[in-house]
Nucleic acid binder design. Sequence first.
DNA 1: TAATGCATGTAACTCGTTACATGATTCT
DNA 2: AGAATCATGTAACGAGTTACATGCATTA
Lengths: 179, 179
Amino acid sequence: MQKYNDSTYAILGILTTNCRSGYEIKQFIDNSLNHFWKISYGQIYPTLKRLEEEGLATVQTLVQEGKPERKEYFLTEKGKDVLKNWLEQPLTQLPVERNEVLLKLFFGRHQTKEQSLYLLADYKQKLEKLYQTYEGIEEGISRHNTNHQDAKYWLFTLDYGKRVTEAAIAWCEATIKEL
Amino acid sequence: MQKYNDSTYAILGILTTNCRSGYEIKQFIDNSLNHFWKISYGQIYPTLKRLEEEGLATVQTLVQEGKPERKEYFLTEKGKDVLKNWLEQPLTQLPVERNEVLLKLFFGRHQTKEQSLYLLADYKQKLEKLYQTYEGIEEGISRHNTNHQDAKYWLFTLDYGKRVTEAAIAWCEATIKEL
DNA sequence: TAATGCATGTAACTCGTTACATGATTCT
DNA sequence: AGAATCATGTAACGAGTTACATGCATTA
């Protein structure tokens, strides 16, 4: 089976929901996957085009009143198979997560102590803000989508973000103390 | 001041150590930064070339007996300034860390429970292996480089890796239970 | 009247990897 | 004899972002 990149699978997955157009897909990602996946129109539209060309989806152009035309994409059986197959495959290997703060801290000997402390304090602050964002989204989902079939899985991904961010914050605190 | 990408700054930083050639830089990254930064020769050599062209480094070709020629790079004052300036700048924004496992779990409703459990168990196992790798490196540094000026900072970056990985493992366990 | 939302799309660019080419020496 | 180490480099490709172009309807 031919390989596609992960963004293609993400789009394939989103097409199983009610999102059908490039515009809607972008919105969905920004609202629901934004904490662990992002994507630009410059990638969405060419991908959708390719999906159709390769028979993974069909298109229907919808003419709307008072709104621009909109192209709706629907997964074909082949498209569903490709998605299913991808879902079944475990990760081949853990990616190396580049971290700019660690890179700077790594060269900490060439900085003053104050600079390193400032770097860490700033990082910590940004992580705390991120944590609050997670909490906000989590609350939103819990309140509005309690009965939604996907809500459970959405909350799992948010829990991941919270736990990992929490650990990073704790590291900042410990490192600031030790510096 | 002109902007460069983070890999350029990484190379600039490494040139402040005793690593002077592309080959040595690659080795250094593979040995010491590998847990949060990686880079290929296809990026190192063109970057070094550019560093020289833009006056951030000078080159000296070293003819060795019984070994191939080797090009040694040395930071200029301008190169040191560029590095220093970068080190002083805090992160502009936290990057979104793409996570393939979360992406698959997000579409968990389209999978069987067994598939999701398998995905998580496999991820957990890989994280545990990674954790052990961190411990191994940490031990190596503690044993051999106790008096090295950089050792402290190297250990900080490893601590980060350990804490974040630990949190991810705990999330796997919790999610497996809840599924 | 200006901004925002809806909606699609492309071209240029950056970043990065992989695969390839070259070639001597040393170790197994 | 073959593999590993030392050493440099390029070409092709893939992934992804940003900026731009277009244009109508609604809201402030």
